[in-house]
Write a protein that binds this DNA or RNA. Structure first.
Lengths: 216, 216
DNA sequence: AATATGAATGAATACTCATTCATTTTGTGG
DNA sequence: CCACAAAATGAATGAGTATTCATTCATATT
C-alpha cells in the first residue's frame, strides 16, 4: 500500500524493498543508534528511538540484536572498526618515510570524517561508561593497544633515523595520542571555538619541537 | 533505635545526628552521587542508589534537590568548583616565575587528588552527555575558558621572557590542555598501563621541546 | 497459482524508577 | 516538658521502556 511504502522509503532504507537481509538491517540499526546517541545521549536513547530513527517497528532491535546491551556493544565495535579502517588505510597510503606516515595519522585524526562532532559525541558517550561497563573497556583497550604499537614503531624509526638523544619513542607516542583525544574533547565541549588548523598547529608544534630534523 | 543509628553512622554521615543541615545533606548526597556514577555509570545511577549509598531514604534526593536533573547539574558544578579550587591554589602556591607556575599546573593535573580514576569516570560520564545536555556543556565551557585564559597568559609570559620566535601562546596552551585530557582518558581506559611519571614525561617532553631555555 | 520462509509488525507484558505525600521522628524555642 | 517546625521516611503512584510473541506480509521456490 502506498502509505506503507512511502513511510518505509522516507527513512534510512536504501531500497524500497520492505524486507532487507539480516546484515543490511543490522547496519541500518547501528547507524540509527549512532544518530540517536549523538542526539539524545546514551542514557536517554531507547529502543523505540532507534526503531523510529530507522523507520522500522518497535520490536525490530530485539529481532536483530536480541538485546539493547548487544546493540550497544556492536555499535561500539562498529565505531572501532570504522576508525581502524581509516587508520590502516592512512598508514598504507602515506609516503614511505616514517615521518610522513606519522604526520598523515595525526592529520587523519583531525579531518572531518574522523573529527566529526556526531561521531565524537558517541565515542565520548561510550568512554563515559568505560569504568562501569567492562565490555566497553575491553573493546577500547584492545584497539588502543594496536594504535599505540603502530605509532610507537613510527616514532622509534624516526628516532633511529635522526640524531635524537634523550627522547623515548613511548613518550612521544603518549604525548601525541593523548593530544588528539584532548583536542576531540575540546571540539565536543566548545565547537564554536574549535578550528582544525589551529588544532593541527598544536600537534605540529610538538612534532617540530621533538623531531626538528624531520618536520622543518 | 540501635539498628537505625548504626546504619546511619556506618555510611557517610559525619555526625551521629539523625538530622543535618540542608547544606550538609546536599554535600553528602553529591558525594554519594559521585560514588554511584563512578561505580554504575551515569545512565544506570538511580535516585534509589544515591539514597542507599548515603544511607538515607528513597525520597531524600527530591527533598533536597527537587529533581534528579538538578542533582546531576549540581554534582557537575561541584566537580568543576573542586577542580577550580585546586587550580587556583596551585597557581598561588607555585613559585613566582611563569615557567614554575605552568609546570606546577601540569603536575597538578596528574597528581592523585585530581587524576583519580573515580573522579575521572564521573568527569567522562558528564562529557559523554555534553552534546545532548546543554546545561553540562555550558558549565564545562565556562570553566574551561578560565583555565585556557590562565594558561595562555603563562605561556605568553614565558614566550616574552625567553627568545622564542614562531610559536604562539595559544598553540602551546591548546597542546598542553588537550594532552592532560587525553592522558586522563588513557588512565580511564587502561588503568593497568598507566604510570603518572611516564605521563608526566610526555608533558615534560613538550615543555622542554618548546621552551628549552626554561625547562632544561 | 500455491506454498514455504523468514522479515517485520505492534499490541501486550513485566518491570524499573522518579516523584509524591501521608506519616513519623527529631530538634528547638517558649 | 510541650508544641511546633523542620527533617526524614518509605510505601504508593504512574510514566516510561525493554522484551515477548501471535500475527501479517513480502519474496522466493515449486
Amino acid at each position: 500500500m502506498a502509505v506503507a511504502a512511502l513511510k518505509t522509503a522516507a527513512k534510512g532504507a536504501k531500497s524500497s524493498r520492505r524486507t532487507a537481509t539480516r546484515e543490511e538491517r543490522r547496519q541500518q540499526l547501528i547507524a540509527a543508534t549512532i544518530k540517536c546517541i549523538s542526539k539524545k545521549g546514551i542514557g536517554s536513547t531507547t529502543l523505540g528511538d532507534v526503531a523510529q530513527e530507522a523507520g522500522l517497528s518497535q520490536g525490530i532491535v530485539n529481532l536483530h540484536f536480541a538485546s539493547k546491551e548487544n546493540l550497544f556493544n556492536e555499535t561500539l565495535q562498529f565505531l572501532a572498526e570504522d576508525y581502524k579502517a581509516q587508520f590502516d588505510s592512512t598508514l598504507e597510503k602515506a609516503g614511505p618515510e616514517a615521518a610522513e606516515k606519522l604526520l598523515a595519522l595525526m592529520e587523519m585524526d583531525l579531518k572531518p570524517s574522523v573529527c566529526d562532532r556526531q561521531k565524537l559525541a558517541v565515542w565520548f558517550a561510550f568512554w563515559g561508561e568505560v569504568k562501569s561497563v567492562p565490555t566497553y573497556q575491553k573493546i577500547c583497550e584492545a584497539y588502543d593497544r594496536g594504535y599505540d604499537d603502530a605509532i610507537n614503531a613510527l616514532c622509534q624509526a624516526i628516532i633511529d633515523d635522526g640524531n635524537y638523544k634523550s627522547i623515548s619513542a613511548q613518550t612521544v607516542t603518549d604525548a601525541l595520542s593523548s593530544m588528539t583525544d584532548g583536542l576531540w574533547l575540546s571540539y565536543l565541549v566548545s565547537p564554536k571555538g574549535f578550528d582544525r588548523d589551529v588544532a593541527m598547529d598544536a600537534v605540529y608544534s610538538y612534532l617540530r619541537a621533538v623531531f626538528p630534523e624531520h618536520y622543518e
